[in-house]
Design a protein around this nucleic acid. Structure first.
Lengths: 301, 301
DNA sequence: CCATGCGATAAGTGATACTGATGGAGGGTG
DNA sequence: CACCCTCCATCAGTATCACTTATCGCATGG
């Protein structure tokens, strides 16, 4: 079970073609064929049906294991090389846009800069699953992922990662429904989900996928999808709401004015009780800027 | 990062010797030397200091990853070969002695036998960490591990396993202090831990390590270790208690008479609130006898 | 019935991973 | 202080392995 073979097996299964996988990996088709044959011989099991190319039942099982395995392998590699090459002060933080803002990353980074002026820091924005992947693979030391969850639940993203990561809630806020300023419900003190089943909703997978989560929680058949927004910029999302493409959910801000966009306003979501939660993801942290920043990020959730 | 190289690296680190690892693995010393050199060259990092042989900091990091990685690799292998070779009805259950009894494994197996008369079943007794390892490595489909925990906490054993396992509580009972029948406190209605700080205790690592857990929970310096019992047989443990070697903790039995040994009796432990908990460990279960048995084992905890 | 596309197979070659022998550094011993 | 012994590194030689190139077999579709 050479990881090499595993990697090409995954590639073949994804491409559903030996030749395509071969050129993607920079091999000849023959090499891929031999590699798969070798893997099958080693395990004594057919992993792929040919023509059309698709995984057998055994192949499916292997695919389930292969992802986490290769991820963990990458993590080990990154961890080891980092341990040696960099007693230096370099730190990569992967974060979702809302996660970084809600957890107070900028302020925490300023404190870090004060304590360790020589630390090189990179902030890398990505969607929540990608943040988890980056941290799991060791490409980032810390991750801030945000999402919608029931008040006591962890984010689903944490469970999905291989298992060698620890997650800690570093921020949670109530949710607000983002509405156009002139929307009839814009002045309401609070809204329950039932009031909004018939409304048009904008789903934003990169910003917590509010619509998808709503449907999971409420189980309702309503919540018509008005528009899917695949960007990760909140201002653009707010502009879409302002223009009437639909409603969406954003973390509420206590006290301060609604910050997301001038044409929109927020009304607290009162039921079901859902929160916007940010979790800090990391593997075991050796002392250094990463550990400092992790400690600086919110006194536990 | 060939798993092969990883395995010999682990062996060298454990044996603290290239030659010893070589003979353990069936290689020549030269081969091991070359393998380690190859690994270090690939990662660009020194993993071991020689003379004496000990891991560098980078090596330590790699060691932390290597175990789970190799475990997961074994799991993948087992899972794949099982998926193909055995649509048949064969099932291995790893269990601790108290875990099997407390979770009602015998009865559940009888029900399984009724539903699937042709199923071959193997029950494999082991300590809790070994149970977890067996399930994680795919050598057993199901695992029943028992241990002491706070009422809401999961068992620590579950957290230690690589992460691709799911754990479900299938039984929990209050704890009783096992005392010799003629012990002055034998007639008490309940005992708090404070009453017993000065007593002699028997620790039984294979039976939940009560003494170790007690000290973690109570933090007290008391709880003198009278005797360490490394066996896994409860009757023997009870005999040791009866002979006055010390007290220990066993799951209480509600209503029914104290079943563990004629010379002993049990008094409920009232504080701190600790429970004896049994968890069912398993990876993703395809339909089959394993899934049936998992379902038959207690309607959730 | 033939062209085309895709995977399997065969043959050849360079790289690789062992074994066995030798070298050199540390640590103990007379 | 010389000696030896242990232990790891290194070297040379060899068998195996993993790739490439070339070819084959077999579906599918015109």
């Amino acid at each position: 079970m050479d990881p090499h073979l595993l990697r090409t097996f995954v590639a073949v299964a994804e491409h559903r073609s030996f030749s395509a996988a071969a050129s993607a990996l920079g091999y000849t088709q023959s090499a891929v064929s031999q590699q798969i044959a070798a893997l099958e011989a080693e395990l004594g099991v057919a992993l792929l049906r040919r023509r059309p190319v698709e995984p057998t039942q055994a192949g499916e099982r292997l695919l389930e294991h292969a992802g986490p395995l290769l991820l963990r392998l990458a993590a080990a590699r990154a961890d080891v090389t980092r341990a040696a090459a960099a007693p230096a002060a370099r730190l990569t933080v992967a974060a979702t846009a809302l996660g970084a803002a809600s957890a107070g990353l900028p302020a925490a980074l300023m404190r870090l800069r004060a304590a360790r002026p020589r630390a090189e820091v990179e902030v890398r924005l990505a969607g929540a699953p990608e943040v988890a992947r980056l941290v799991a693979a060791g490409e980032a030391e810390l991750g801030l992922a945000d999402g919608l969850a029931a008040p006591t639940d962890p984010l689903p993203v944490a469970a999905a990662t291989a298992g060698h990561l620890t997650a800690r809630g570093v921020a949670h806020r109530d949710l607000a429904v983002a509405l156009p300023r002139e929307h009839p419900l814009a002045g309401a003190a609070g809204l329950a989900l039932g009031d909004l089943v018939d409304a048009l909703w904008i789903d934003a997978p990169a910003l917590g996928a509010p619509l998808t989560r709503l449907r999971e929680v409420a189980g309702a058949d309503g919540f018509r999808p008005g528009l899917a927004y695949t960007g990760s910029d909140v201002a653009t999302l707010a502009a879409l709401v302002a223009a009437g493409h639909g409603l969406t959910l954003l973390p509420a801000t206590a006290g301060t004015p609604w910050p997301y966009g001038p044409g929109t306003t927020g009304v607290r979501l009162t039921a079901p009780r859902l929160v916007h939660r940010v979790e800090l993801l990391h593997a075991t942290l050796p002392p250094g800027p990463a550990a400092d920043l992790a400690a600086a990020l919110a006194p536990a959730g």
